[in-house]
Amino acid sequence: MPRIALITLVVRDYDEAIAFYRDALGFTLVEDTDRGDGSRWVVVRPGNGSGSDGGGAGGSGTDLLLARAKDDEQLASVGAQTGGRVGFFLHTDDFARDHARMTAAGVRFLEAPRHEPYGTVVVFEDLYGNRWDLLQPTTSA
């Protein structure tokens, strides 16, 4: 059955993006390969063995391809790739743990956590301003 394996996220700089997704969000750096033309193939995956339900090797999760902007047009899209809407949804199996870890790492949350029929959720921004949901779905969701 087909599935989305990668989603490209345009970034300003490879290393700052890797540091944020790895250190602040707890993602795993899956691949960082020099392509020989000044660009790199950089893939990060939610979850680092901490129990986050982000997919992973053998899982059904989707990885992020961090692609450095290569011109002014792409640079202008950094942080606005979803038009100001929440465009990414990071599921967790322990909301309190991951919210506390991300808060301690300096992640910017745009609201207080809230409980909805579908789960516990909070909106946050990545280092570029892209909006994400941190979401622990209810067991029936």
Score class of each variant (00 low, 15 high):
Ile4Met: 09
Gly61Asp: 12
Phe88Val: 14
Gly119Lys: 03
Pro137Lys: 02
Met1Glu: 13
Gly119Pro: 04
Gln136Thr: 00
Arg35Glu: 08
Ala80Trp: 00
Ala24Gly: 05
Tyr128His: 10
Leu29Lys: 07
Val10Lys: 06
Arg108Phe: 08
Asp133Tyr: 06
Asp53Cys: 12
Val44Gln: 08
Ser39Pro: 07
Gly56Tyr: 10
Phe20Asn: 11
Thr120Pro: 01
Phe109Asp: 11
Arg45His: 04
Thr139Arg: 14
Ile18Pro: 01
Tyr128Glu: 06
Thr120Gln: 10
Val122Trp: 05
Ser50Arg: 15
His99Gly: 06
Gly119Cys: 10
Val123Pro: 00
Glu73Arg: 11
Ala141Tyr: 09
Trp132Gly: 04
Pro2Met: 14
Pro113Met: 06
Leu25Val: 09
Thr103Val: 04
Leu9Gln: 15
Val122His: 00
Gly58Gln: 12
Leu29Trp: 07
Thr120Ser: 07
Ser60Gln: 13
Arg22Ser: 12
Arg108Leu: 09
Met102Cys: 05
Val78Gly: 02
Gly56Pro: 14
Pro113Gln: 00
Gly55Asp: 15
Ala104Thr: 06
Ala17Phe: 12
Ala17Pro: 12
Gln136Tyr: 03
Leu64Asp: 05
Leu25Gly: 02
Ser39Val: 04
Asp133Arg: 03
Asn48Trp: 08
Arg108Asn: 01
Asp23Met: 09
Leu75Glu: 09
Asp34Val: 02
Thr28Pro: 05
Gly119Tyr: 08
Leu110Glu: 14
Asp126Pro: 01
Asp126Val: 05
Thr120Cys: 00
Gly61Ser: 14
Pro46Trp: 07
Val42Gly: 02
Tyr118Gly: 01
Gln74Lys: 09
Trp41Ile: 02
Ala67Ser: 08
Gly87Thr: 15
Gly129Asp: 11
Gln81Trp: 09
Gly36Phe: 02
Glu116Gln: 13
Ala80Ile: 02
Asp133Ala: 01
Val11Arg: 08
Pro137Val: 04
Ala112Phe: 03
Thr28Trp: 03
Val11Tyr: 07
Leu127Tyr: 07
Val30Arg: 02
Arg40Cys: 06
